[in-house]
Amino acid sequence: IRVTEDENDEPIEIPSEDDGTVLLSTVTAQFPGACGLRYRNPVSQCMRGVRLVEGILHAPDAGWGNLVYVVN
Protein backbone atom coordinates (compact mmCIF):
# COMPACT_ATOMS: atom_id res chain seq x y z
CA ILE A 1 0.00 0.00 0.00
CA ARG A 2 1.08 3.60 -0.54
CA VAL A 3 1.77 5.51 2.68
CA THR A 4 2.92 9.07 3.31
CA GLU A 5 3.51 11.37 6.28
CA ASP A 6 1.50 14.19 4.69
CA GLU A 7 -1.06 14.11 1.87
CA ASN A 8 1.19 16.31 -0.28
CA ASP A 9 4.36 14.22 0.21
CA GLU A 10 5.66 11.45 -2.05
CA PRO A 11 4.25 8.10 -0.81
CA ILE A 12 6.34 5.07 0.16
CA GLU A 13 5.14 1.58 -0.77
CA ILE A 14 4.63 -0.60 2.32
CA PRO A 15 4.09 -4.36 1.86
CA SER A 16 0.94 -6.05 3.12
CA GLU A 17 0.83 -9.50 4.68
CA ASP A 18 -0.48 -12.56 2.81
CA ASP A 19 -3.91 -12.10 4.44
CA GLY A 20 -4.16 -8.50 3.20
CA THR A 21 -3.45 -6.84 6.56
CA VAL A 22 -0.57 -4.49 7.31
CA LEU A 23 1.47 -4.71 10.50
CA LEU A 24 1.79 -1.46 12.41
CA SER A 25 5.45 -2.41 13.00
CA THR A 26 5.99 -2.34 9.22
CA VAL A 27 4.61 1.20 9.10
CA THR A 28 6.64 2.39 12.11
CA ALA A 29 9.82 1.00 10.54
CA GLN A 30 9.44 3.65 7.82
CA PHE A 31 7.61 6.28 9.91
CA PRO A 32 8.90 6.19 13.52
CA GLY A 33 6.20 7.22 15.99
CA ALA A 34 3.29 6.26 13.72
CA CYS A 35 0.30 4.92 15.66
CA GLY A 36 -2.11 4.25 12.78
CA LEU A 37 -3.23 5.20 9.27
CA ARG A 38 -5.99 7.32 7.77
CA TYR A 39 -7.17 7.97 4.22
CA ARG A 40 -9.46 10.32 2.33
CA ASN A 41 -12.78 8.61 1.59
CA PRO A 42 -13.28 8.97 -2.19
CA VAL A 43 -17.07 9.38 -1.77
CA SER A 44 -17.37 11.79 1.18
CA GLN A 45 -13.89 13.38 0.82
CA CYS A 46 -13.57 13.11 4.64
CA MET A 47 -10.55 11.57 6.32
CA ARG A 48 -11.28 8.10 7.71
CA GLY A 49 -9.19 6.03 10.12
CA VAL A 50 -8.00 2.51 9.29
CA ARG A 51 -9.09 -0.12 11.83
CA LEU A 52 -6.22 -1.19 14.10
CA VAL A 53 -6.54 -4.32 16.27
CA GLU A 54 -3.61 -5.60 18.35
CA GLY A 55 -0.96 -4.05 16.11
CA ILE A 56 -2.61 -5.15 12.85
CA LEU A 57 -4.12 -2.68 10.36
CA HIS A 58 -7.15 -4.03 8.52
CA ALA A 59 -8.02 -2.92 4.98
CA PRO A 60 -11.14 -0.79 4.42
CA ASP A 61 -14.25 -2.66 3.23
CA ALA A 62 -13.33 -2.04 -0.42
CA GLY A 63 -9.73 -3.19 0.11
CA TRP A 64 -6.60 -1.06 0.16
CA GLY A 65 -7.19 -0.02 -3.47
CA ASN A 66 -5.18 2.74 -5.09
CA LEU A 67 -5.58 5.20 -2.21
CA VAL A 68 -2.75 6.99 -0.43
CA TYR A 69 -2.73 6.42 3.34
CA VAL A 70 -1.44 9.03 5.77
CA VAL A 71 0.27 8.12 9.05
CA ASN A 72 -1.22 9.22 12.38
Rank of each mutant, 00 (worst) to 15 (best):
I1P: 02
R2S: 06
R2Y: 06
R2F: 15
R2M: 08
R2I: 04
V3T: 00
V3M: 05
V3Q: 00
V3W: 01
V3R: 00
V3G: 00
T4L: 08
T4R: 08
E5I: 06
E5A: 14
D6L: 08
D6A: 10
D6S: 14
D6C: 10
N8I: 07
N8C: 09
N8D: 08
D9Y: 14
D9W: 11
D9E: 12
D9I: 11
D9C: 14
D9K: 14
D9A: 14
E10D: 10
E10P: 14
E10S: 10
E10N: 09
E10R: 09
E10G: 06
E10Q: 06
P11L: 02
P11G: 10
P11I: 14
P11S: 07
P11T: 08
I12D: 00
I12T: 10
E13V: 09
I14C: 06
I14G: 01
I14L: 11
P15W: 07
P15M: 14
P15A: 13
P15Y: 09
S16A: 12
S16W: 12
S16Y: 14
S16N: 09
S16Q: 14
E17N: 12
E17P: 05
E17G: 06
E17K: 06
D18Y: 09
D18L: 14
D18A: 14
D18N: 11
D19V: 04
G20S: 05
G20P: 00
G20K: 05
G20F: 05
T21S: 09
T21L: 02
V22Q: 02
V22K: 00
V22W: 02
L23F: 03
L24A: 02
L24N: 03
S25R: 11
S25K: 14
S25F: 04
T26R: 15
T26D: 05
T26P: 00
T26G: 06
V27C: 02
V27G: 00
V27N: 00
V27W: 00
T28K: 14
T28V: 13
T28I: 15
A29S: 11
A29F: 10
A29L: 12
A29T: 11
Q30R: 15
F31S: 03
F31N: 00
P32F: 02
G33C: 10
G33T: 11
G33W: 06
A34Y: 00
A34K: 01
A34V: 04
A34G: 05
G36K: 00
G36W: 01
G36P: 01
L37M: 05
L37G: 01
L37P: 03
R38D: 08
R38N: 12
R38V: 14
R40Q: 08
R40W: 14
R40Y: 15
N41I: 08
N41R: 05
N41S: 15
P42E: 11
V43K: 06
S44Q: 07
S44L: 07
S44A: 10
Q45N: 15
Q45G: 13
Q45L: 12
Q45H: 08
C46K: 15
C46Y: 08
C46I: 15
C46R: 13
M47L: 12
M47G: 04
M47Y: 14
M47S: 08
M47D: 04
M47N: 09
R48E: 15
R48Q: 15
G49S: 15
G49H: 15
V50Q: 03
V50A: 02
R51K: 13
R51A: 11
R51H: 06
R51I: 08
R51L: 13
L52E: 12
L52R: 06
L52K: 07
L52I: 13
V53M: 09
E54L: 04
E54D: 10
E54K: 12
E54Q: 13
I56N: 05
L57A: 01
L57V: 00
L57Q: 00
L57D: 01
H58K: 07
H58W: 08
H58P: 01
A59C: 08
A59E: 10
A59I: 05
A59R: 07
A59S: 09
P60V: 03
P60S: 00
P60Y: 00
P60H: 01
P60K: 00
D61Q: 11
D61E: 11
A62Q: 14
A62G: 14
G63S: 03
G63D: 05
G63K: 03
W64C: 01
G65L: 04
G65D: 06
N66E: 12
N66A: 10
N66Q: 13
L67A: 10
L67V: 14
L67K: 10
L67I: 15
V68Y: 01
V68D: 07
V68T: 13
V68H: 02
V68I: 11
V68F: 04
Y69F: 08
Y69E: 06
Y69Q: 05
Y69N: 05
Y69R: 03
V70D: 03
V70G: 05
V71G: 03
V71E: 02
V71I: 07
V71M: 03
N72E: 15
